[in-house]
Design a protein around this nucleic acid. Structure first.
Ligand SMILES: NC(=O)c1ccc[n+]([C@@H]2O[C@H](COP(=O)([O-])OP(=O)(O)OC[C@H]3O[C@@H](n4cnc5c(N)ncnc54)[C@H](O)[C@@H]3O)[C@@H](O)[C@H]2O)c1
Ligand SMILES: NC(=O)c1ccc[n+]([C@@H]2O[C@H](COP(=O)([O-])OP(=O)(O)OC[C@H]3O[C@@H](n4cnc5c(N)ncnc54)[C@H](O)[C@@H]3O)[C@@H](O)[C@H]2O)c1
Lengths: 253, 253
DNA sequence: ATGTCTTTGTGAACGCGTGCACAAAGATAG
DNA sequence: CTATCTTTGTGCACGCGTTCACAAAGACAT
């Protein structure tokens, strides 16, 4: 088992804070909408409202990219769209491979907004031999055996994992070995990757649990002193187990 | 149009930091796996590795919940599973409604891990009349017209939005009006909600763009001085400006 | 009971992100 | 050209989150 980094070391890329990078797509989306309405310029206040952020934060974010605004006027929409697109690397084409074409993988493959910004679904890969050749979203599913070649041939550097949790680490290792350096992981698994590989995870279950936490707090504020059930002192509280298992799948021994 | 909060004011719930809350599900998942292997106790070091975090961070996180560890030994797995579950509100049942049963909505409805931790898909709602009555994942899809009643009848407080972006705000407003106070939004839209309503967003496009940014950086490190294409210098000189009339496009009127 | 050894719980320092508040910059009018 | 007005760009302070490092706490052996 590879002793890889689990956490990316807060790269602080070229002076642009990570938090800012995460907001750039938000600005870009709002700006694109303005562009489509042929709005020539926009103030930081207006744009901030559209993006749902503080205007000072937005100005500071833009200041990391350079001084693209005009005082007294605002920002030129088209110019800013171009600059942010370039900064995010959206002016070039990014071939993406999706591994695990089940419910979620198929939905992603069918997703139109996927390809709208330079991201192109270059390959669909699944371990099920029965799926090989079957077209999903107009693309024939290919078998895992050829993963290495598929990644190389298409120059894929971004991989999307939508396999069951138990297979995620293995798939991840193979993707990385084949040359993938960025992974978007939908499986509820902590992935270990070598230095230099970025992993971002999308975890529906975690999101819901965070919501539930706050939800419980809201409900508990009124009925303050609520009796708690007896905490099991060293007992088995009938742990409910999911059908999916939700296996973290990290560390075998 | 309601002037709702877009940002939750960093509630700082009962002294537990938001960052800690976001990690609790991660710990819970690792602990559940240990529990299924009948591992009785675990040290902060081991658990931290399994969850992919720093051990000091984990201990500090747990310290917010109370002193549940034993020095020299570690943490009792079962007990900790129970405590975290209770803290997250997972000991109770959370009926969830999914609105917009398309590619993504159907995938979510079919997702088993959804129901594995107290979250129960109570209703599927869509605006398409043709879908009304059609069973998806064993549940009949209901029409948007009955949204209000469906939410009330099932006591739904958590709503999931998987409609097209244009419909998201409207659906959100109706959900909130019906009593929903937590929303998980998959549509690429900035939602406005009144105070007291939590919104979390899952945005695939943003994740990919963040990956692309770092990917570009990695690639550009070697081929440093790359010539940029001609940036479009100021398209329209802008005669007419909409100071307040031009709405930023994200929120449909 | 005493000593040793392991691991927790936390004080303290540090760095990052956020938001205020304002001076500088430029547009626009007279 | 000068005055006024708008909006950017940023210095600064503050709070949150992270991490180090270690004393205290308990288990376990003798
Ligand atoms: N469906 C959802 O809404 C949803 C939501 C959140 C998270 N997830 C997670 O996403 C993942 C996929 O979910 P799903 O509902 O699509 O599951 P699924 O069972 O429908 O699809 C999984 C697919 O992966 C393929 N697969 C299995 N092992 C593989 C391997 N080693 N290499 C390549 N392909 C392999 C299977 O053949 C199958 O087609 C799971 O980890 C799940 O926990 C799903
Ligand atoms: N499919 C994906 O993988 C994916 C990924 C990321 C984001 N998204 C986003 O998720 C959303 C849904 O994506 P999708 O691919 O499932 O789209 P889809 O078109 O397949 O499904 C949308 C569904 O919403 C229903 N709908 C439309 N207006 C409605 C309304 N007012 N009330 C209730 N239902 C309504 C439609 O009838 C349809 O069934 C979109 O906003 C999309 O941008 C999808």
């Amino acid at each position: 088992m590879a002793t890889g980094r689990t956490h990316r070391p807060a790269t602080r890329s070229r002076g642009i804070p990570e938090a800012t990078v995460a907001r750039l797509p938000l600005y870009l989306r709002a700006l694109t909408a303005l562009s489509e309405r042929s709005v020539p310029t926009v103030s930081s206040e207006e744009l901030a409202t559209a993006a749902g952020v503080n205007s000072a934060k937005l100005r500071k974010d833009f200041s990391y990219l350079g001084s693209y605004g005009t005082r007294g006027v605002g920002y030129d929409v088209e110019y800013l769209v171009y600059q942010i697109s370039r900064e995010l690397g959206l002016t070039q084409d990014w071939p993406v491979a999706i591994v695990g074409i089940g419910n979620l993988g198929a939905a992603l493959a069918n997703y139109g907004g996927f390809a709208s910004r330079g991201f192109r679904v270059a390959a669909l890969i699944d371990a099920d031999p029965a799926m090989a050749g079957t077209p999903v979203a107009g693309i024939a599913v290919q078998h895992t055996d050829d993963l290495d070649r598929i990644i190389s041939d298409n120059g894929v550097s971004i991989g999307v994992i939508t396999t069951p949790p138990g297979a995620a680490q293995q798939v991840c290792d193979r993707l990385v070995a084949a040359g993938v350096t960025s992974i978007l992981n939908f499986a509820p698994t902590v992935l270990s990757v070598p230095e230099g590989v970025d992993v971002r995870k999308v975890d529906l279950s975690i999101e819901l649990q965070i919501l539930a936490f706050h939800e419980q707090r809201k409900a508990g504020e009124d009925s303050a002193a609520e009796d708690e059930g007896a905490p099991p002192m060293r007992a088995t509280p009938a742990s409910r187990k999911g059908p999916d298992g939700d296996m973290p799948a990290v560390m075998p021994a």
